[in-house]
Amino acid sequence: MTLTGENSKMNGELLTLASRVIYALSVNNFNTVFNRILSSLNLSTSELEDADCQISELELIQYLSMDLTRLSRLIYEVCTKFKGLKKNAYLALSNFLERAIWNWLENFPQEFDELQTKPNEELAERCERLFDMLTPLCSDSGRRKAQTWPLQVMLLVLCPNLLEDINNAENGAPIGASALRKKQFFDDMKRALASHNHSSAKPSLLEAAILATVNMCKSACYVNINDRSNALFSIVQRVISDLKSILFLQAKSGLRTPHADTEHLLTEFFVTCFRITPHNNEILKVCLNQQSPPIFHFVLVCSLHKIITQPRLSWWPTINNFYSKSADLRNMFLETLNRLMHQQPRISQV
């Protein structure tokens, strides 16, 4: 059955409720749930006909309650099984593991903040190992990169020492062979973003770069804003302007994201920019402009809602920054309402 309309909404609500149940179960029964995942991971590497059916069970990964120790264990298990996975399995697993990292980051932000000053070498080794496994599998396919680059960038975000080496190399410092390969990954993303105005730009590669760099920028919000010397902040500054241009500022949007919800992606980036540079109103002005596409108005509302409702880290700016724009927001709502009221109704054809 194709889920549309009310069915799709109900499916989303059921998924949300189910994910909360899985999270709660894994808090006190982590090993039981984790062993089920390991069993599915083992079967996904087999040649059995029902191996593909096990992929759906791997989706549990993204809903588990995992601290840094558990996350490191999960990445280790994925590394040990990865070479035996079929293409559809590793692509699905890439998506699930990326979300699992975000689940950890959002539920244990203090661990990520501590990781910046006390890097975990065992975790870094596992992340780099998995990164290196993923790279050759998507080297000749922009579509695969759109599914693996978001995970790969999150794996590198968990390696602050490596990011420091990459950032120093930008300023001429020597760099080892392993770190150089990761630097090449960042260079590839920057080139893909910079190509967005060129006729030679490859849409699938541009999408991969957008998804990955939005992830990277978003993760920078979880580093204390007072730690501006952090390498992640420096790397983010090299891509954020191109992202703004692609997603919001250019006359004709270059955004094509078949592998992501466009509205969600824009909302995440709006909130990210606000948290990194709260006094830069560049994107806000675009979203408030009554001539802007309606999706930007919707993204603004969703962004404000997230800023208000998401549990706030101490260094994140508050919604108070938007109070001075209340009149503009009201005008935007009234204009949208007026436009809808005078819109010609569509006549469905039978």
Rank of each mutant, 00 (worst) to 15 (best):
T213D: 07
A194R: 09
N171W: 05
R191F: 01
A192T: 04
T148Y: 04
F131D: 11
L158R: 00
S141D: 14
P160S: 08
A179P: 01
L206R: 14
T135I: 14
L193T: 07
F186V: 00
M133I: 11
W149D: 11
V153E: 04
A208L: 11
R181G: 04
T148H: 02
S139F: 13
M189G: 02
L156T: 10
T148L: 10
L211W: 09
P160Q: 05
M154V: 07
L156G: 07
E164V: 01
L211V: 13
Q152L: 06
A179F: 07
I175A: 06
A177I: 04
C159I: 03
L180E: 13
P203S: 11
S195K: 01
K190S: 14
A194E: 13
C127K: 03
G172C: 01
D187W: 06
M154H: 02
D188W: 04
A212N: 10
S204P: 14
L162N: 02
P174N: 06
A212R: 04
S200C: 00
Q147E: 09
P174V: 01
F131M: 06
L155A: 03
N197E: 15
S204F: 15
D187C: 00
K182P: 00
R143C: 07
I210A: 09
L137T: 07
V153W: 03
Q147P: 00
K202H: 09
P136Y: 12
Q152T: 01
L180G: 08
L193N: 11
A177P: 02
A173V: 09
A173T: 04
K182G: 05
K202M: 06
E164S: 10
A209T: 09
K190G: 07
H198G: 05
P174D: 03
L193I: 08
P203G: 10
R191S: 05
A212Q: 10
S199V: 00
S178L: 12
A201W: 00
P203W: 07
A192Q: 12
A201T: 08
L180Y: 11
A201G: 09
R144L: 13
S195T: 00
E207T: 14
T135N: 12
F131C: 13
I166A: 00
L155M: 03
D165T: 09
L155Y: 05
L211A: 12
A212D: 09
P203Q: 09
P150N: 01
L137E: 07
N168F: 05
D140K: 14
A208C: 10
L180R: 11
A169K: 01
L158K: 00
L130Q: 08
E128Q: 15
G172Y: 03
L134A: 02
A209G: 11
V157L: 02
F186Q: 01
A201R: 08
N168K: 10
K183N: 09
D187P: 03
A212V: 13
L211R: 14
M189N: 00
N167P: 00
L134S: 06
L137A: 07
K202Y: 05
M154G: 02
F131N: 11
L162A: 01
L163P: 02
S141L: 10
R181D: 08
H198Q: 13
G172M: 01
K202L: 08
C127I: 10
I175R: 04
P203I: 11
A212G: 14
N171K: 04
M189A: 12
P150G: 02
P174L: 03
L158S: 03
C159D: 00
K182S: 06
S141E: 11
R181K: 13
F186L: 07
L206M: 07
W149A: 14
